[in-house]
Nucleic acid binder design. Structure first.
Lengths: 335, 335
DNA sequence: CTGAAAGCGCTTACAG
DNA sequence: CTGAAAGCGCTTACAG
């Protein structure tokens, strides 16, 4: 049987209240008693039961992490970064893959509530704002990572998608591209919208025209990237460069180009977004905009902790600068 | 404030015992009362506090999942499969990336114990057997997935790595390869040992000689795959085919071959293991042995549940047959 | 400086 | 069929 606070109290010849105080550094326990108790705890290999103390209003030291899919490389990297932050401070994190379905989001949130998590990190899109509003009404701390809602006051940390878009545009423009198309995720995804807005801004700054007909919307799958690229590359006046809102679409585009006999980067430049492991592994290696995942996780976790400890902290929105990793999928346009 | 069992009892005009019985289908609550109570629970949006009921010896409906690294594609796929199984039955899973370090394993296990998880799924290597023995002594159900310990009696589900190795050998042999080398993970990894044993068996069955000098050991990283492949490909009598114990090493080998100007598959055939997303994305697409991840997760979870419910169930070892996915990284040897 | 007692939100015999 | 009471492992005033 696991040792309880009663066992150590009996062993130490004190009351459980004193043991509790010794553990938590509360009340006034004499130094001598305290050390003696701590020693006994060690000997008995006593670990306080977190759930029991949570019942008395203390923290559960458990957090929920909502992301679209833990098996997607981008989100698994986010998850790892969050896990590491959490682990350092003794928090556990429960993974929740939502598949971007509100219905799954709701089930998961209900589950997390029942388990009294201290807070929820949200890295997935949520269509129905009421879900978030309800969470706030229940005073469950939330922080959004890599996703955002403009309408709600909630702590969020994102990469600067707008600037990322500009970077991609500038790079392509420098390489001499003038006929460029975009492969986008669904426009309800806030980051996709921002990336496109930034990209168009970047082109406009350089006086390069862009027509919205050159945007094709895809779901977040390689197959979809192929389909979208196929549509664009089949046009009479085919683009010389593609800006893709994520690496997965970029890879789909690369595959489609190859099967159409279009050489990357000689005949078609491709830039992705996210800099997942996939970008490094593909041939040619993908030029892509990298989000500072580690920093994002650190900041997000910091915000979470602050929420947990303070009363009504002022909501923050932290925007981190991305960087473009130029590899071999982009080249000067052939003249 | 969240509704408690007292709130619904008061609202229903009954005692909390009756509410509890109604929820759990215990005792004898009249149908009418039961329905009335359930309705009120619904109205009040009452969710029982799992941690409180866990205190009375019920389950926490929380499981731990130990894997080397959630950001590694193979393990993130395992994690997703486990998560889906768990979610269906109302279990949450806490992710624990161990980096294959016993010290991290121990910290995580201590954390999981404090949180009273119902059981722990282990998909990571553990060097110090005492860690597992202790877990068993504490009667914490464990099941191993994709890893095993022969010395301990513990439920485990693995792919048949031995057969996977044979499949790889047969495929390469059929393609006419006779000069073959192996890129292995550290030999302390049980699955790597089995894969190699199977591979050698496969060759031997076909009377193809193999020399252990042709095995190079690498850590689980692309860079290491490059290094290992470089070593092998630099030899005077360079092999015409490489069997790699996982996709990551295979991809490292592909990259190294390319940078040495050796064409895959024309001059060098490569087969990997695991069939992660990476295998599909790389060029040429990688021939690789696939583990039936979904089935493995299902079985592992099933074993877990059985452990949770039954007294001392007989320990099982479930071995699932892998399959080889032949893509374009392997070809007939040039004659 | 220390302990008795009440309470957190539940479940489980047990009595009626 | 239903409820009073004890108890799970803790924490927190409060009294001494």
């Amino acid at each position: 049987m696991k040792a309880t606070i009663y066992d150590v109290a009996k062993e130490a010849g004190v009351s459980i209240a004193t043991v509790s105080n010794a553990i938590n550094g509360k009340g006034n326990v004499s130094k001598k008693r305290r050390e003696q108790i701590l020693k006994i705890m060690e000997q008995m290999n006593y670990q306080p039961n977190v759930n029991a103390s949570a019942l008395m209003g203390k923290k559960t030291y458990t957090l929920g992490l909502l992301i679209p899919d833990i098996s997607n490389p981008f989100f698994s990297e986010i998850a790892r970064a969050i896990e590491d932050q959490a682990h350092q401070l003794g928090y556990s994190v429960i993974m929740c893959s939502t598949d971007n379905k509100d219905e799954r989001v709701e089930r998961y949130i209900a589950l997390l509530e029942q388990k009294n998590v201290d807070g929820i990190l949200i890295g997935t899109g949520i269509d129905n704002l009421d879900i978030l509003t309800n969470l706030q009404a229940k005073h469950i701390p939330i922080v959004m990572i890599s996703r955002e809602t403009t309408t709600l006051e909630v702590d969020t940390v994102v990469a600067d998608d707008f600037v990322g878009g500009i970077m991609a545009a500038q790079h392509l423009a420098e390489m001499g591209h003038r006929s460029i198309a975009i492969l986008s995720e669904q426009l309800k995804v806030s980051s996709a919208r921002e990336r496109i807005r930034g990209f168009k801004q970047g082109l406009q700054d350089l006086q390069i025209p862009f027509d919205d007909d050159n945007i094709v919307i895809c779901d977040y799958m390689i197959q979809e990237g192929r389909r979208g690229a196929g549509e664009l590359l089949g046009r009479e006046d085919r683009p010389t460069a593609l800006f893709c809102c994520n690496d997965v679409l970029a890879i789909g585009a690369m595959q489609e180009a190859r099967s159409l006999g279009i050489k990357v980067p000689e005949e078609l430049s491709i830039v992705g977004f996210d800099d997942t492991i996939l970008a490094a592994v593909v041939d040619p290696p993908l030029t892509t905009v990298a989000q500072p995942i580690m920093s994002m996780a650190k900041q997000a976790f910091q915000l979470m902790i602050t929420n947990l400890d303070e009363e009504e902290p002022v909501k923050k929105r932290i925007v981190l600068r991305p960087e473009i990793n130029i590899r071999q999928s982009t080249a000067r346009v052939k003249s």
